[in-house]
Amino acid sequence: MALILENDADILDEYRTGQRDRAVTAFVRKHQSFVYSVAYRHLNHNEDSQDAAQEVFLRASQKLGEFKGESTLQTWLYRITVNVCLNMRRKKRFLSFFAIGEGEGERDVAALQHSPATHAEQSEFDIYFQAVLVTIPTKQRETFCMRYYDELSYEEISELTGTSEGALKANYHWAIKKIAAAIRTSDYYEEWFENERP
């Protein structure tokens, strides 16, 4: 029996041999950042993303024994996360229909720029970076995030999104060029770069 469950195979073995609590703990700890990041990119809201991550792990933990291993646990989790986020957005949209003065679009922008939690946890520059990300096309943004933050291979991203690897590479390159150009011309960069210069 492995003392530390570092890889997915160990987690699954542990789960199947009856050590479910231990396996679920390792499973959640290993993938929680990834799931939260994906959820945050879809929902743009800290609390909603936390709820989504919890829901994703709840569903995944209940079905962990049925996981066939046809893909990696990460890609499996990605699919569940996207589905959960879509459901949450649908629910929000439905509720916002009855809410007065708060639309989905308004909430997204507000969450990006004025959320107290965001202010507490992120620097101004990070908020600016997020704002730059929002300006680039969705496919390029998602490809950049999956490739750069989540460190998925093009093959895995292709499997998840159904987009060809060539198109994904092009998306990633365009995303980096646009982000770099925006940062390069920003006041933040100048200020930061000047301070760093000897």
Partner: peptide, 8 residues
């Protein structure tokens, strides 16, 4: 990490 603290 902060957001997912105690998630398990």
């Amino acid at each position: 990490e902060i957001a997912t603290r105690n998630l398990s």
